[in-house]
Each structure stands twice: as C-alpha cells, then as structure tokens.
C-alpha cells in the first residue's frame, strides 16, 4: 500500500499529489493522509473516478483515505458490495437505541444483535434510518459503529436525523451516515416497498 502524505496542502493540491503518484507508480492501493475533511472528500472522489474503492478513516487528528484498485473485496464478516436492490426495497427505521420494553440492558443487547444480523436481508436492505434516541447508535462510542460503517461502505444509504442530533447535542459526534431531514425520510418511505419500524 503506497502512502501519500498530503497534510498541510490546500485544495486542489492533495488531489494533484495523489494523481501524480497514480500516474507515475500505478499502485494497486494507496493510503492518503490529509489534514481536513474537504481534502479527504476530494481525494475520495478522485480515487473513485479512477476506479478505486475507498474507505475513510480518522487517525490521530489526520484524515485518511484508503483506496484499493478495482472492486474492493469485502472484508470478512462484512456484507459484500452490492448493486442497489430494484426488486424489493426495505427501509428500516430505528426510533430507539434498544429493542422493546422491560429490561433496558437486554433491549440494548438486542438492538446490537439486530443491527449485526440485519445484513442477512441481503441487497433488499435499501435504507437504514435513525431518528430520536436511535441517532445515538450512529455516534462515537456506539457499540455497532463498525458494523454500520461496514454497511455504508458496502453501499447501504444510512440516514441520521439532523434535528435529533441537534436536540441531543450530538451533531459533532456523528460518525456514520448522512445527516438528513424529515422530507428525506418521508420521501424514502414513499419510495420503499416495505418499511420496518423499531
């Protein structure tokens, strides 16, 4: 894996740096370090335009883009990259961070297990939406963060309610998914073939 250090450079320099390395060395994989989110996003787009599959990471204050040439082989235990389902689109909406009533401790465990098992739906799983207390599953410290990130990498669109993040003062701590609004959620419900509410 070729490492490119583009920290301290402003847009569009990190993209040009990455392009130069790709042009000259044609590496199968790159790890690009930048120091701001905008450059990270730009390098990700550039690598994807060149046929790389990308993963975004944070490392000690730096922003990292890891790119692998060709379709990325799905890491073990993670859902494989898949085309958007066209036959049956299932939207799962989590309005809570635990399943059911009774024992809260058990409820939390069940939710973690549910989200880990959700990949068994396969390509029909189309949207995963978090609202109200559910947004806490998408912020740092969440037990299922890695699983959710793996879903996102595999192409699942995860929507996280912006009003709810703001309400809980968690906007800065969101780690996965797109910040969304009620109109997006309602539109998704309309387009989905099946909506599962938790």
């Amino acid at each position: 894996m070729k490492e490119i250090d583009a920290r301290g450079l402003a847009c569009p320099a990190p993209v040009l740096h990455t392009k130069a390395t790709l042009d000259q060395e044609k590496p199968a994989g790159v790890r690009v370090l930048v120091d701001n989110a905008a450059s990270q996003e730009n390098v990700k787009r550039f690598l994807e335009s060149q046929g790389f599959a990308t993963v975004l990471e944070r490392s000690a204050g730096d922003f990292v883009v890891v790119g692998r040439c060709g379709a990325a082989p799905a890491p073990a235990g993670q859902p494989a990259a898949r085309p958007a389902a066209e036959s049956n689109k299932i939207m799962v909406m989590c309005a809570t961070d635990r399943i059911g009533f009774g024992d809260d401790h058990l409820g939390v465990k069940l939710m973690v297990n549910f989200l880990r098992t959700l990949k068994e739906m396969g390509p029909e799983l189309w949207r995963l939406v978090f609202v109200n207390n559910g947004v806490k599953l998408a912020v740092d410290g969440s037990e299922v963060l890695e699983e959710l990130k793996a879903y996102e990498r595999a192409g699942l669109k995860i929507l996280v309610c912006g009003t709810c993040l703001t309400h809980f003062n968690l906007l800065e701590r969101k780690q996965v998914g797109e910040t969304t609004n009620m109109l997006d959620i309602v539109t998704a419900m309309q387009l989905a073939d099946k909506v599962v509410n938790l």
């Binding site: 569009p12 905008a38 730009n42 990700k44 787009r45 550039f46 912006g162 910040t179 609004n181 539109t187």
Partner: peptide, 21 residues
C-alpha cells in the same frame, strides 16, 4: 467528479444539507 472541488463547496453543503432533499 474528479474531486477538484473548492473547500467552500463542502462547507456550504455541510451547513445547509439538513434543509435540502
């Protein structure tokens, strides 16, 4: 598509994306 995007465009999106569907 190649990532030649000014940082301001990303900031604009982050600031307003909750209003846009």
């Amino acid at each position: 598509a190649m990532g030649l995007i000014p940082a301001g465009a990303h900031k604009n999106r982050e600031f307003r994306e909750a209003m846009v569907a």
